[in-house]
Design a protein around this nucleic acid. Sequence first.
DNA 1: ATCTAAGCGAGACGGTACGTCCTGTCTTGAG
DNA 2: CTCAAGACAGGACGTACCGTCTCGCTTAGAT
Lengths: 204, 204, 204, 204
Amino acid sequence: MNGVNDVNGESGRRGRPRRPETDTRILQATVELLGESGYGALSIEAVAARAGVTRPTVYRRWPDKAHLVVDALAQTVPVAPAPDSGDLRADLHDLARGLVDRLIRTGLARIILAVHADSFGHQDLAVPLRNLYLRPRLETITDVIARAVDRGDLPPHTSPATARDLLAGPIFYRWLVSGDLTDTDVEELADTTWRALTGQEQGP
Amino acid sequence: MNGVNDVNGESGRRGRPRRPETDTRILQATVELLGESGYGALSIEAVAARAGVTRPTVYRRWPDKAHLVVDALAQTVPVAPAPDSGDLRADLHDLARGLVDRLIRTGLARIILAVHADSFGHQDLAVPLRNLYLRPRLETITDVIARAVDRGDLPPHTSPATARDLLAGPIFYRWLVSGDLTDTDVEELADTTWRALTGQEQGP
Amino acid sequence: MNGVNDVNGESGRRGRPRRPETDTRILQATVELLGESGYGALSIEAVAARAGVTRPTVYRRWPDKAHLVVDALAQTVPVAPAPDSGDLRADLHDLARGLVDRLIRTGLARIILAVHADSFGHQDLAVPLRNLYLRPRLETITDVIARAVDRGDLPPHTSPATARDLLAGPIFYRWLVSGDLTDTDVEELADTTWRALTGQEQGP
Amino acid sequence: MNGVNDVNGESGRRGRPRRPETDTRILQATVELLGESGYGALSIEAVAARAGVTRPTVYRRWPDKAHLVVDALAQTVPVAPAPDSGDLRADLHDLARGLVDRLIRTGLARIILAVHADSFGHQDLAVPLRNLYLRPRLETITDVIARAVDRGDLPPHTSPATARDLLAGPIFYRWLVSGDLTDTDVEELADTTWRALTGQEQGP
DNA sequence: ATCTAAGCGAGACGGTACGTCCTGTCTTGAG
DNA sequence: CTCAAGACAGGACGTACCGTCTCGCTTAGAT
């Protein structure tokens, strides 16, 4: 639960304790620099300088750039609360807008993509990324679906995971291949997913 | 149509002409190294060495790693032919399997993701990536949809682009968040999309 | 007499003739750039660019930087006329001032030093440098001495070459080790040499 | 006294200390390569390779080739002891032979000339060159002169600096313009200088 | 109160790669 | 044959980071 960083892992209590402020400053610097220049251009050197810390101090806590970034994302990006208006269609639109506003428009999606691309095949990175970062955020969506099933707004055999992929997948894919995403696009895609899930008369 | 690399662009034919073989060797080396170690770890240095060429020779043709990789992808990854069995469901399954077999299982998807993450905000890179690489490959999917609409297998107001996002989006999204993709997953997601498009009784 | 450069040496009259203007422009550019940034920083590339010519055109005429510079110096730096006032002391002062004004103060001495340092051991360079550049300039001095011997102002066994070294050597040496040379220094050194040659009462 | 290189200069003793061996190895390699191919052809790259060190390690200590070479000369070329036979004429011959044997015949003079040519106008280079390298070596000569004045072998108003220039200047000048120097030349020039200083019957 | 282990800033170090510049040679097409 | 243009192999430039290491100093809990 406490990230990739050991934070005085089980072993240690002897010796001078780490200043907790140092952790914060490094993560803060990481987030700032990610926002300014992206994952590829991020260097440990720059993070350390921005945090007013030396490189070894960073390496004492995180083994490399990727692990550092995962922690920075996990501890910095807030998990949005799951919408619960009682109306599935409204909730889906809410979720869709949330994805766009909090991930795509802020540039976060780009960073996460880069970390993902870097992490494939590195289990020590991909696993924490999924557990720390993704899981709680994905659950926001599956919770909404599960509640709709409970309410009877969706058929009982509806798979929350598949429904989630049906909502978020097309949005990210559209963004990826077109490079842009208008509000109308998002509305339309959310509606299409809602119709697909509920079996309303066809679109798109 | 001739890539990011100028290939003796408009300017003329004066001076010693470029050896066309050199282009090929560099792109070939790029593809090989991408496959071996991914986009992040790719260095121009290594590409040049593998191609039996000096670094300046590479820089004469492509301004940086990203542009080089875009060209390498565009000229190397084959565009799969659009399936045309006459049966939409079969075609969709075919397309879905194709995405997985040719992009995800080969590691290409990971590379494309990395290039994308690098390219956002760099129009000189993102635009060629979309025009040279993505567009022809996306058309394979929209062609299948358009033909199904013509045949009357899909409602006439069906948007090929949206249908495309509905098919490919969930697959990539699932792969992204779970890190893996079984054949069953793919079948199920393709079926869900088919049902959503045709309005068959609901899943998933 | 025609320098290191072949200037359509004996062999050629067939084919398109060389534009003589090109020779001039290249030498001119060389002298300018030498003055601006010295011998070490001079590049054939820059010479060609300044002369509005391509690199191979330069290489067709001179095999390398050193040969080019020797020719540029020989054809550009004027040979000062030998002073002949009838008074040896005045002539020596004149020569000394000339060395300082035309070589040291203009930066030429520095360039010649660099070429010399580069040329040692390269006979194909050192020989033309001495024959084309140095010899005519050294003769200005030995001529003055020889005339003074003829006039009886100096003992008949005076060696013009040694006398020359006794005049010019200390001046250059002083400049070399102190980095600067005041008018008084020069006067004093010239006087010392005059006294040494004529056997006047001792200094310095 | 400690060269152009900081050698953990005033700033302090924090951080991992430099291996002193590294300094030595780099200077050693510099001297060797200077001897093999001269100043112009010397590259930091080659020095680093020969010293078994990487380029950045060299640049950490010296800003460029010229500074490196100045230190290499200063720390490597021994200062010859001043001759003190009690006989001025013998001492002058001794000094002259020393100049030729230790500077000209070893190729050192050529290197020093090249550094000088490079250093003019660069005070940060010319000043250390004079202070570290030249000054102690020039003093060998002026000491001899000063002692001769004390002994009464030279007139009391004799300027040691001028006398020094009168001895060394002609020798270097002769070497420079003729490219060679026989033992007889040197003897003759030293004698000429001795006569000039003491006012013996004239030569040359 | 001392001991001892760790944190930490500082900076050296061997490396790899960067992107640029220049060298000297070559290949083409035009004059 | 000249010449402009420009490709090419090669080599060096000076810089930026990497990840590791060795210092001296500081900060604490354990003794």
